[in-house]
Design a protein around this nucleic acid. Structure first.
Length: 297
DNA sequence: CGGTCACATTTCGCATCCAG
DNA sequence: CTGGATGCGAAATGTGACCG
């Protein structure tokens, strides 16, 4: 029984056409300008620059190039990531000392205890996860990656949290980030109406992409897909152009995220809690020092 | 109410095209 | 002529929107 196996040597000695080398160079160039990108993101970048078509074929071309490129050592492994699959395993430590040593890095004071209002950041595309994570995770703000339309399960789960804050007299808000296209503008509307059905008063604010962004930053626009009703509604709403959130330059997006967060946080109270956190951490390391000393006796 | 299609994500087999 | 490149269809999963 012979199973066709492509050996490492086959992979390494693969020849390429000049056009392919050209694409490798373009991908490398895009990668050099970012921290980490998913294949999907690379595809969007290439499509907006017109290197490939903005459809399934273009995506596949990029996907294959990324696979071959990495296997052949042409493209870097550490800059291309898959955010849709992740492993799950119990946390384990080499020793008790090892365990204690990571404890301080886990400690954060709950900033929501003294904030007047509560909010979360929701976004449509998991491709942009890293950018959002880098901007807001450390602030203690919840990031929800919706991936297209939100699910009822997620909205219900979140509504339980929002209800708790509302009962305390706080206002609840979602800062929403998504594409500006016929489907994209439906997503935050759908989230809003679902929360309404659950009788939870949450304000959904679209931070990006706005229609003005397309003009202000001269964003590359999508080709109109034949999308019957949604497209008709889009046009009825007065929209002509469509663009993806990915198309917004990274620096602009980062600024937009952090500005929307600082606008919605009570920064004085936030800083106050961060100071307390520092004090707490000194206490933690003192206590841990005592425990570790006792251990080694 | 059920069927169909669109959306998001990634990979693979098969058939075909065409550069070197 | 060979094999690199690519178009197309399919897989899984859950959700909204629309049509009849």
């Amino acid at each position: 029984m012979s199973i066709p196996i492509q050996s490492t040597e086959d992979v390494m000695t693969r020849r390429h056409r000049t056009e392919t080398w050209d694409m490798f160079k373009k991908i490398k160039d895009i990668l050099s300008k970012h921290k980490r990108l998913s294949v999907r993101q690379i595809f969007y970048q290439c499509a907006t620059k017109n290197y490939v078509s903005l459809d399934i074929n273009g995506y596949e071309r990029i996907g294959r190039l990324c696979s071959q490129g990495r296997l052949e050592g042409i493209l870097p492994w550490d800059k291309i990531v898959d955010r849709s699959r992740f492993p799950t395993q119990l946390n384990m430590w080499d020793s008790v000392g090892d365990f204690y040593s990571i404890l301080p890095s886990l400690y954060r004071r709950n900033i929501w205890l003294n904030q007047p209002n509560y909010f979360e950041v929701w976004m449509e595309k998991s491709a942009l996860y890293d950018i959002f994570y880098d901007q807001i995770f450390d602030h203690g703000i919840l990031l929800m990656t919706v991936r297209g339309y939100s699910s009822l399960s997620i909205i219900y789960e979140r509504s339980l949290i929002f209800k708790k804050y509302i009962a305390e007299g706080r206002k609840c808000k979602i800062l929403y980030f998504g594409d500006h296209d016929p489907n994209g503008i439906q997503i935050d509307k759908s989230i809003r109406s679902t929360f309404r059905k659950l009788n939870v008063d949450v304000d959904i604010e679209r931070i990006a992409l706005t229609y003005d962004d397309i003009f202000e930053y001269n964003l590359p626009t999508n080709i109109e897909k034949e999308e019957d009703t949604n497209l008709d509604n889009y046009k009825l709403a007065g929209y002509v152009l469509q663009a993806e959130l990915d198309a917004l330059p990274v620096e602009i997006l980062e600024k937009r995220i952090i500005n929307s967060v600082t606008d919605n946080l009570d920064m004085d109270k936030y800083k106050e809690y961060k100071e307390l956190e520092k004090r707490d951490l000194q206490m933690v390391s003192q206590d841990l020092g005592g425990i570790i000393n006792k251990q080694s006796e």
